[in-house]
Amino acid sequence: MNALWIATLITSAICFLLKFVGYSLPESLLNRPIIQRINSLIPIALLSALVAVQTFGADQNIVVDHRLAGVGAAAIALRFKASFPVMMLLAAIVSALVYRI
């Protein structure tokens, strides 16, 4: 079994268990503000890191290329409250144009 299969199946299993365990834990856990704060910040940190790495990373190098133009377009689209598909389409179009030039 290669790495793609391992990542697919094990992440799926863990994420299902996380969902399932939630239904079995004492509700009082929710009342702890520290858990709520960390829980709302974890996706923010990871997603921001993913934006940065997917924009600037190429193997272990930091590069500035067509992807930055696409992500920049996405940021402008989001700033003007574009919907999710419109934003992604703009990012793809701008990035593809810069790549082909």
Binding site: S48, V51, A74
Partner: peptide, 17 residues
């Protein structure tokens, strides 16, 4: 890359965050 897919992925993360 020619279709902008490599920028669509970080854009998706940006839209999520």
């Amino acid at each position: 890359s020619a279709w902008g897919l490599d920028a669509a992925v970080p854009a998706a993360f940006l839209g999520l965050v």
